[in-house]
């Protein structure tokens, strides 16, 4: 059984505890009541993560004030290097509606398991990099999973998926 064969569990059944980029404690129940968009990434990531953050910033700009009702979160897969302060500095370059979440590795592993997402650390050139699930997960306001926007998916397909959870 691999992660991609399964769908994320409903938000109400998720059980991880993280810290947001402002240093405040976070629990998934805080997402309930509003539609939610989540992806996994890390700030040492030079290509995929800024690309996804730019895509999300563009989608939010396209949706305008309507998107204010969305929860939008980046969950770090690299808690050793992504402190709340680092996430705050990094995210200040993108749409301010995006919230960064980090925390203990054990809690991030729980989060990935709940999303059926995968991340792994790979040694690289004296340091390491992370392979990770690249899609953007969408959930309805009541917390059930609705769809994934694939990495770099054309906005003509992405925007309707987001509109769907906003209605």
């Amino acid at each position: 059984m691999t992660g991609r064969d399964l769908l994320p569990i409903p938000i109400r059944d998720m059980s991880f505890s993280l810290t947001d980029h402002n240093g405040q404690p976070f629990a998934p129940s805080q997402w309930l009541g509003r539609p939610t968009m989540v992806f996994f990434g890390f700030t040492f990531c030079p290509d995929v993560c800024p690309t996804t953050l730019n895509d999300i910033s563009d989608w939010l700009a396209d949706l305008g004030p309507e998107a204010d009702r969305l929860n939008v979160a980046l969950i770090s897969v690299d808690p050793a290097r992504d402190t709340p302060a680092i996430l705050a500095e990094y995210l200040s370059n993108f749409d301010p509606r995006i919230v960064g979440l980090t925390g203990r590795l054990s809690e991030l592993e729980k989060a990935a398991a709940d999303f059926r997402a995968i991340f792994e650390k790979l040694p690289r050139d004296g340091g390491y990099t992370m392979n990770h699930t690249a899609g953007v997960f969408l959930f309805a306001a009541e917390g059930q999973f609705t769809s994934i926007i694939d990495f770099h998916e054309d906005r003509r397909f992405a925007i309707p998926k987001i509109r769907h959870i906003l209605t």
């Binding site: 995929v48 899609g135 694939d150």
Partner: peptide, 12 residues
């Protein structure tokens, strides 16, 4: 490097 997304997993 090349970003490769395979089965939804990004690697580089």
């Amino acid at each position: 490097h090349e970003t490769v997304v395979s089965d939804g997993i990004a690697s580089m």
